[in-house]
């Protein structure tokens, strides 16, 4: 069976990413070098494609790892493998999920969305639905350790457009894409 590809596969290929296999997905392991990418994220801001994450749409509140989207509307997101909770609809394929991380991530994102991203309006582990670069998006704040970070969930067909817009928005801070290796280093 051939590997799963995110909406950004060709985009990554063009930027010269080194690919790896992860849970059946063909995803970028690195773009420059993992160490450089980690340093960039810690200093300013970086962007990663995490479309392989599992996502479930729920009407009832699950035990953990949940994001509140609306009244009786929850989203569960997590690393594969993971069992679908009872009554959940698997929406993993629906979203291109991006990880925007680094101290300047908020400023970069503020160029693409009108929503208030400040600490008081969007504290850690809270999410908001809004428009990012003219596409509907779920913006979820989940810091990596003490580093400010967001998940951006965009309907898959907008993936490339939004990726390019975020890269463009962060150019003042030399925003660079980062791969799975750097992401793992950041989490350690």
């Amino acid at each position: 069976m051939s590997m799963k590809r995110s909406s950004l596969f060709y985009c990554h290929q063009q930027s010269g990413a080194g690919f790896t296999e992860h849970q059946g997905w063909e995803i970028p392991a690195f773009f420059l070098s993992p160490e450089k990418e980690v340093a960039q994220v810690r200093d300013t801001v970086g962007l990663s494609d995490q479309s392989y994450l599992l996502k479930f749409d729920l009407k009832e509140r699950p035990m953990q790892g949940r994001w509140l989207l609306g009244a009786n509307h929850y989203l569960l997101m997590g690393e594969p493998p993971m069992d679908a909770p009872l009554g959940a609809i698997d929406v993993s394929s629906v979203y291109t999920s991006l990880r925007l991380a680094g101290p300047r991530s908020r400023e970069s994102l503020a160029r693409l969305t009108s929503v208030n991203l400040s600490d008081s309006a969007l504290p850690n582990l809270q999410c908001v639905q809004t428009s990012v670069a003219h596409a509907h998006a779920i913006v979820m704040r989940e810091d990596i350790g003490s580093t400010l970070a967001f998940h951006l969930l965009i309907s898959r067909e907008f993936g490339e457009s939004v990726w390019e817009s975020v890269i463009h928005a962060g150019r003042e801070f030399n925003l660079c894409p980062f791969g799975l290796t750097a992401l793992r280093l950041l989490h350690n």
Binding site: S7, Y10, L112, A133, H134, E157, F158, S165, A169
Partner: peptide
């Protein structure tokens, strides 16, 4: 503003 024209591409675009 910047040129963000959102394009919706199907998975078989390429």
């Amino acid at each position: 503003g910047p040129r963000h024209h959102p394009i919706r591409r199907t998975p078989m675009h390429y």
